[in-house]
Amino acid sequence: MSLLDRVPTGNGDLALLAGVCCVLIGGLFALTPLRAQLPSALYVFVEVGILFVIYGLLVLGLDLQYGHTGLVNFGHVAFFAVGAYGTAMLSAQDTFAGIGLGYPWPLALGVGVAAAALVGLAVSATSIRLRGDFLAIVTLAAAEILHSVFVNFEGIFGGNVGILGVPRPIAALAGDADTRLIATLLVIGGITLVSLAGVTRLTSAPYGRVLRAIRADELVTRSVGKSTVTYKTQAFVYGAALAGLAGGLFALYNGAVAPGFFTIQVTVTVWIGMLLGGAANHRAVLAGLAIIMGLRLISRFALDVTPVPSDVFASIRLIVVGLILVTVIRYRPAGIWGDAQELGVDR
């Protein structure tokens, strides 16, 4: 059997290796007296980096749903929020508002992921048979409903204050602020890399072939004997679970959750990142997300040197993001690294 004939491994194994290494090194920082020194100018980069690897889990899940299977999910933030709230409410001690049960955080994280997957399953059970745009409307509506549930059921979810007092396992272990940031970035980044390996394996296997066939033509896929509803449900639930994992990790990093972290802005950022990079290509969507989040970082510095007030600047930033998206869609409709033939777009 020649090497070429083997099932393509892609870079999944490399990501797996790198991910495990990152988690181990991060654990080393957290558990041993080893200390990291961080120049203060780099703080902001590491902070945005942590947010990037968390959002990275979101974009990987969304890409499994949209890029590979063609399911238009405009409510991705809902699963992120469910994972975060689930984890926070189970693990929080002495929360100011809402419910905090004070269970150990690993259990809470597990429950958060499971809750997100269950909400994903519930949305699929009712709506996965809907075609493209209709599923988009349902998911968008589901996300808005959940958002207002989180805001309005103050006794349970803490209203606009959210849930406070969530344990921060890495912060508790690491000695000082610098070490804490580095360890957090490494551990969560490692988890994201391991997830990248997982989705890469899934999509490069015959499993991914079925998903891409569903995206191309569902009736044909059924007529060659594949239960497309099962596959669509699975892809949707896996994407939701990844978003739930991202939410849980976010809660455990941030130490608090509130509705303000889970606005439609999150969904928009992740979608733009995916389309910019090129859907159906795991590394491309991560790169696209890096571009859009890097832009946010640059604009943070630019704000200090531009003579306009910050609210005007915020509008300018939105205009720039919009222009970039328009330019990419005009000249590279499949995204920067996307394959136009595979996505079926005209060049």
């Binding site: 099932v7 997982g198 394996r201 899934l202 296997a205 015959p206 499993y207 991914g208 072939r209 079925v210 594949k226 699975q234 896996y238």
Partner: peptide
């Protein structure tokens, strides 16, 4: 069998 999740993940 590779059209199921677990075999696809563990190859």
């Amino acid at each position: 069998p590779g059209e199921q999740t677990v075999p696809a993940l563990v190859r």
